[in-house]
Structure formats: structure tokens, C-alpha cells
Design a protein around this nucleic acid. Structure first.
Lengths: 301, 301
DNA sequence: CTCCAATCATAGGCGGGGCCTATCAGATCG
DNA sequence: CGATCTGATAGGCCCCGCCTATGATTGGAG
């Protein structure tokens, strides 16, 4: 049985006339006669009472027609949905973002994203790198903004921009008097984020292993970390995009001599079919950040 | 687009694997790959994200799948309904019956009908001949039991049995002393049914035109008519199957010399597709009435 | 009563599309 | 690096739906 047959059935039932139903269906009358007859044979039910001037649906036909109408309506709903889903740049887009980036980047890219991709409905999801990668692999995310490379052939990533690290100091810290700070100097009393944050590992790698590491204090977020530094518990290293927030928290910022930093990337499943949307989002972010990268390259904060 | 395609879509979405979905669908894997690909082209939507070990439905696919499931479910419901509608001897059967026959025939044929056609659900509809013919022609009835021939090529009928007429008299009526009554004698003070009853016309035709005809009294049903006769307002002519009811009403019955009567027929639209059901009902009625016809032929009441 | 118009059914032929097997191409893993 | 599993591609076959032409009935007009 075929959807076409059901449409023919509905047409004949509506017109009660093979010829007119054929015209309405865009086929010849014999086609309709044959197909209806075949449908009757397949169902084992006489569908129409053929008289000289009309073809009236039988009682059995009337019972079946409701189901036929349902099937046809469902497929047309499917086609309509497909129509609206056709644009890969439209619809929900679940974008993971690491916590040390989300609150500082998102405000900057919302407007450009909306301008460049008006039909896209981005749904940000903030979580640590490993969680994002898990959700990406299990199809719970469409892409993710990370500060690390991805491993494995099932994921692919593209670099979007470089973000320098800055030394963050209490205003009364001895190093605050310096124009620039050496990474090794920071490591004396550096505080880092709690486990799982990629920024923790990157800070340690940039400044060298240290005994301090915040001691018993575990900062689970960048704002907490900055408040701890402002309270005089030590120093830290913050990503450039958080500079504004750090200054608002009363911290003194200084460039690092080795100009360490991290590369922000967008990652997606290699076979993800909406790659055009991924690239478009990447383009918007990279474009929006290019001015920041230029300013950072000249040493400005 | 095709129902088959939707089934394939559901199969792949369920198994997340082309090969297993193909096996479950009873086709080869290339067939499935090609058809899914064609469906994607038609819809303009990528339905599956093909990776090396799995084919995951895309978000768009998940939205479309509900509609696909609906369409497939509707067609399967249609097939199931057709299965149960397949037997023309099963299901509703709207049978019209004239009022001068219904209350006396129906009790006799209910049990035999149920025995011979257990799946049939007869729905009796009692009305006068013209109304029955109208409903028959407008497909509101499937067949009708009438006492007249039908006209026009759109209707067909078959004689089922002959029903003799009997003279019905008040017990103290002069004619009650006779063994048989001549029709002309009845016409002196005959009462007949109101307009629209075929029995009215048949009584008048059998006994000849008369001035009485019940005068201002209009009996709209046979029980009323019998009560009027029992009350001494006149005589009448009743169909044989009503003999029992007439005797219960206190009437005296006498055979008529010319042995007038009417032929009960079953009528249906010439093109009505459940003719087998019509004939089967006719057979049951004719069989049940054959004993009555034999007794009537010997003059017994 | 015959002819004509209308209706649905039937016949024959054409073409598209779905199905198959065989094979290719890429990924994964020992 | 080959073995294996995955989905994609190619070529050929055949069914089936479509068409036009025609037949069979019916009902109405002249």
C-alpha cells in the first residue's frame, strides 16, 4: 500500500466521481480506476459503490478514510517540518563553552551572532572540558568552545583566536609595582582553580609547578579565584577576556614576560552534518575577537 | 515520498545502523542507503550522522520521526480496520422495514438471523415505504423489507414470501358468523390506515373503493386500527403475520374468498456491494416464513 | 426506439524507480 | 599492514504506475 493510493482514495471519496477525482489528482481516469481497484483487492474491502452517475463511498470506506486522512496529514506535516528544518543555519544549536570563557565571551558574541545568523537559536551549555567532550560525543552538544586540542578522529576542531594570560595581583602586592611580571615570579604564591578546569593545568604549565597552588583553598570558579586574590591570599593568572572583570574586582593586572596564553577552538564531531553552522559560528567569533587579538598583540590590556 | 521510505527511516533511526536496519526491514543494505539518501535529498535535510560505527539520527531527524511514526501507525490502523471489515456478512447492516410488518416479523427472524449470520449487526429502521426508498437511495439504508415492487433501475428487489390478508371483525359483527368473507362485503364498513401506509392502498385495492374508509378516524398504526375495530367502529383487513396480535386484541379473523395478499420483498440499491449480505438475509427470512406460507396456503390461520 | 453523451473498466505499451549483487572506499583494530 | 566492518556506488533487472485508446453500460434526448 502506498501514500499515493490513500490520496486517490481520499480524492474519489471527496468527489464521489472518478473522472473529477482524477482531474483533481492530476492523473487520468483509468489510472484512478485501476489503483482504486487494486487497493480494494489488497484491503479485501469494496470501497466505492459504483452507480451510473456517482461513486459513493461504502460504509467500510468511511471507516477507513479517517485513517487515510491521518496518514496523509502526518506526511504533509512531516514535509512542512522538513521545509523549516532545511536550513542548516537555522534552528537549535547546542554550543558548549568552558566556564573560564563563557561569562566573558558570550556577552561579546551574542549580538554579532544574532546579526550574522538570525535564524540560529544558540543554546549555550557551560561545563568543564571533559564534560563538554562527553556531551559532544554523545550527541548532546553540536559544538563546543574549548581551550584545548581535541583527541581522537571522531572530533575535529578549528582554532578561533589566541587569548593571552595576564598576571593578576592584589594592588599592594610587591609585583604590582612592576610593568611586567615573569611567570616564575608568580609561581611563588599563585592560586589556581580547582581540578577539572583546563585553566588550572595551563596556569601550572606556564608558571611551573609550585607548592602553594592555593593550599587548602579551592576556587571552583574564576570570580571566586579573583576575589581570593583581591583578599590578599596570593596571586593568579587570568585569561585576557576576564581582564575587565578582574579590574572590577580590584585586581592589578600585568603582562607576563613570556606572553603565555591559550588558543580558543571550536570543536565538533567530525561527521556532524551542520558543519556549515559550526564554521559560521567560528567565523563570527574569530571576527569579533580579531580586534581583541590585535590589541593584545600590541601589549594593551 | 513513500510510506516505505518512512518505514526505512524509522528502522535506521531505531537501529542506528544501516546494516541491521536493512536486515530488520528485509532489504539489502545498499537499498537502504540509497533510499535514505534519496529521502534526505527530497526533504533537503540530513537525517543521519554517519560515523564509522553508528548512524545517529540528527536533531532534525528526531523532529521528523514523530510524524513518520504517525503516518505509519495510521496506515497500519487502516490495514487492521480493513481486516475486520473484510467480511461482507459482518458489521452493521441497516435494514429498513415497513411498520405493518416490523413488529410481527422482527421477533420471528431475530434468532434465525443471529444463528445464520452471527457477525452481522442488523439495525432495523421502521418507516413507511416512501421514506425507506428515500433512505435507501441516499445510502442511509443498506436494504429494506417492503410490500411493494420498486421502480427505477437504481433499485432491485427480490420476493421473499407471500402474506395473505385476513378479514378482521368485531366478534359481534354479522360477518363474524361466516366461515369466509367476500372482499366486497368488507368494504361496507372497512377502516383503513392513514395515508402513506402501503397497506392502506392494498386494502382499498382488494376490497374496492368505499365511502367509509374510517371517516374522520385516522389510524396511524395497525394496533390502533385493530383497537378501533375491536371497539366496533367497523371492520378491517390485516396482514397474516398480525393474526396473533389481532386475536389478542379480541378480533375475529376470517379468510377472504379471493385470497388476496401482499408479497414481501427485500430491496437494495442495484450497485450495493454487500449483495451477498442482502441475499443471505433474504434467505433467512424466506426460510423462516416458508412454514407460514405453507400453513396459509392450506387455509389455516 | 435509437442515438448520443457520460461514466467507469479494460488492454497494451512505455518508462521510472526500487531492488538486487558485486564492488569500492574509509575507518578501526589486532 | 592486512583483516574486518562500515556505508556508498555501479550496473542490470523487473515490477508497477502511468498513459492513450477502446470497450461496456447507463441514462437521457430527439
Amino acid at each position: 500500500m502506498n501514500l499515493r493510493d490513500l490520496r486517490y482514495l481520499l480524492a474519489v471519496a471527496e468527489h464521489e466521481h472518478f473522472g473529477r477525482a482524477a482531474k483533481a489528482s492530476g492523473v487520468s481516469q483509468p489510472t484512478l480506476s485501476v489503483q482504486i481497484r487494486k487497493l480494494e483487492d489488497q484491503l479485501g474491502v469494496i470501497l466505492f459503490e459504483r452507480a451510473s452517475k456517482q461513486a459513493a463511498p461504502t460504509a467500510a470506506c468511511l471507516q477507513l478514510i479517517d485513517h487515510a486522512r491521518g496518514a496523509v496529514a502526518a506526511t504533509e506535516a512531516l514535509l512542512a517540518s522538513a521545509q523549516s528544518l532545511r536550513d542548516p543555519l537555522a534552528g537549535r544549536f547546542r554550543l558548549g563553552i568552558i566556564p573560564t570563557l563563557a561569562p566573558y565571551l558570550l556577552p561579546l558574541i551574542f549580538a554579532p551572532l544574532r546579526a550574522a545568523l538570525p535564524a540560529l537559536e544558540p543554546e549555550p551549555w557551560e561545563d568543564q572540558t571533559d564534560a563538554l567532550l562527553d556531551r559532544l560525543r554523545s550527541h548532546q552538544l553540536d559544538a563546543a568552545l574549548l581551550a584545548t586540542e581535541v583527541d581522537g578522529p571522531d572530533l575535529t576542531s578549528r582554532a578561533l583566536f589566541d587569548e593571552p594570560f595576564l598576571a593578576a595581583l592584589p594592588p599592594d602586592h610587591p609585583l604590582a609595582a612592576r610593568a611586567t611580571v615573569a611567570e616564575a615570579e608568580l609561581s611563588q604564591d599563585i592560586l589556581v582553580l580547582s581540578d577539572g578546569h583546563c585553566l588550572r593545568d595551563q596556569a601550572i604549565e606556564a608558571c611551573g609547578q609550585t607548592a602553594a597552588l592555593g593550599g587548602a583553598l579551592r576556587a571552583s570558579s574564576l570570580p571566586t579565584l579573583m576575589n581570593m586574590v583581591a583578599a590578599g591570599y596570593g596571586t593568579t593568572l587570568i585569561p585576557g577576556l576576564a581582564a575587565g572583570a578582574a579590574q572590577d574586582a580590584g585586581l592589578t593586572l600585568r603582562p607576563l614576560q613570556g606572553r603565555p596564553g591559550r588558543t580558543l577552538r571550536i570543536a565538533w564531531r567530525t561527521h556532524f552534518p551542520r558543519r556549515v553552522a559550526v564554521e559560521a559560528i567560528g567565523d563570527v567569533v574569530a571576527e569579533r575577537m580579531s580586534s581583541f587579538a590585535r590589541r593584545a598583540a600590541t601589549g594593551a590590556v
